[in-house]
């Protein structure tokens, strides 16, 4: 069984055929060569695979590609405007909120979903928004600072 789907990825429409058991994460990484979303745990515990689906942060490791039919997907690759980085990308660099970088795409997308809804988030709201994103390097403080700074830009 192959199913035709049409999805919008980072602002462009695509038509493709997928198998029912293909995951959105793997389709993005393998078919689209968008390797920003990471495979961490595969079971919804780490948030490394976070992408935006119609503007909301979701886990692409627990989303079937067929389920994304007709929807809009944003990955970390879709955030910059040409060579100009998104304010959150800039602030993550400036605040040293990236160490190994494995969690960063997911972190930034969770943060983007938050500031799109709440342009001036409180610390507690930031913590809440990234609670589903695990970072084993930074200790989170620099990430929270970066999100605050990015929101102000």
């Amino acid at each position: 069984m192959r199913i035709p789907i049409s999805i919008m990825v980072n602002g462009k429409n695509y038509n493709l055929q997928v198998k029912p058991n293909e995951l959105l994460l793997n389709v993005l990484r393998e078919n689209f060569s968008l390797s920003g979303a990471k495979y961490g745990c595969g079971i919804g515990e780490c948030g490394a695979c976070t992408v935006l689906l119609n503007g909301r942060a979701v886990l692409s490791c627990l989303t079937l590609a067929v389920s994304a039919n007709g929807q809009e997907i944003t990955t970390i690759e879709g955030l910059s405007d040409g060579n100009k980085l998104h304010p959150l990308q800039e602030s993550f660099i400036e605040e040293g909120a990236i160490q190994c970088g494995f969690c960063t795409p997911g972190m930034i997308l969770s943060a983007k979903a938050l500031i799109d809804e709440k342009p001036e988030p409180l610390n507690s709201e930031i913590k809440e928004a990234i609670r589903g994103n695990v970072c084993r390097c930074t200790g989170y403080i620099s990430i929270i600072t970066a999100i605050k700074a990015g929101a102000k830009k």
């Binding site: 069984m1 029912p20 058991n21 793997n26």
Partner: peptide
């Protein structure tokens, strides 16, 4: 392996 879904199903 939780990277892929190991079984096939109809959808």
């Amino acid at each position: 392996d939780t990277k892929y879904i190991g079984i096939n199903f109809n959808y």
